[in-house]
């Protein structure tokens, strides 16, 4: 087995490639690709995602567009525990804090990124060293009407607050499916945002995240209806 050298030509090929990885430990995938496996993920955040991208032939990097732009598919790794439940919330994309005028749900990054997702669940319990964590079975997902509606409501509520200068008042408790949280390696990074009186303020960069309850429901749907 070797990592592919070209991006997948079709959705089917992508899914095929992904399914070939199901069940294999990350250590095996890494050594087959000639990549070093870290002892832990303290300094190598995003390693798992990058390794899977490599094996699927994605053009690496987390740009605003999808991981497979020509297929319109976004790749999301999802750490799960032994019982098959998500361990963490899922990062979707950076939240725009300035120049937000005119962004609608339909043309938003969140909507675009989540229009079609290849979910790659991966064992993520902390007691497992990275090399021993295994890929679970990947699956393709398109939000249902009610999931989209839920995401849209959350997004609009959060974006209203951002554009009306209440970004500092947003807590992770807001939003049923989608939440807004600081996104940075540490708390010292700051970015521009709109303050409560319309002036410019400095705040920590924020990202949109899918709640665990939402991804848990996705897993349940995918593995009992298939």
């Amino acid at each position: 087995m070797h990592p592919p050298t070209t991006p997948p030509d079709s959705e089917q090929e992508l899914l095929c490639r992904a399914r070939q990885l199901a069940g294999l430990p990350l250590g095996t995938l890494a050594s087959l690709a000639g990549i070093k496996t870290p002892e832990n993920f303290k300094r190598e955040k995003g390693w798992t995602g990058q390794l899977i991208e490599l094996w699927l032939g994605a053009t690496a990097g987390s740009k605003p567009q999808q991981d497979f732009p020509h297929l319109g598919i976004e790749l999301k790794t999802l750490p799960i525990n032994d019982a098959g439940n998500p361990l963490e919330t899922t990062y979707v994309c950076y939240a725009p804090l300035t120049n937000v005028a005119g962004i609608t749900w339909e043309n938003s990054n969140v909507r675009n990124k989540l229009s079609r997702v290849l979910w790659c669940p991966v064992q993520g319990e902390r007691h497992l060293p990275p090399a021993q964590r295994r890929m679970a079975t990947p699956f393709l997902w398109t939000p249902t009407g009610s999931q989209l509606e839920q995401l849209r409501q959350d997004w609009e509520e959060l974006m209203d607050m951002i554009s009306l200068g209440q970004v500092e008042a947003i807590t992770a408790r807001q939003g049923v499916a989608l939440q807004l949280r600081p996104k940075a390696a540490d708390g010292s990074k700051l970015t521009d945002a709109v303050g409560f009186d319309g002036t410019s303020i400095q705040t920590r960069p924020r990202g949109f995240y899918l709640r665990k309850t939402f991804t848990k429901a996705l897993l349940a749907d995918a593995f009992s209806i298939l």
Partner: peptide
């Protein structure tokens, strides 16, 4: 994204 370390060759 500089806190994401690029993959390293074995």
């Amino acid at each position: 994204h500089d806190y994401i370390t690029p993959l390293r060759r074995e």
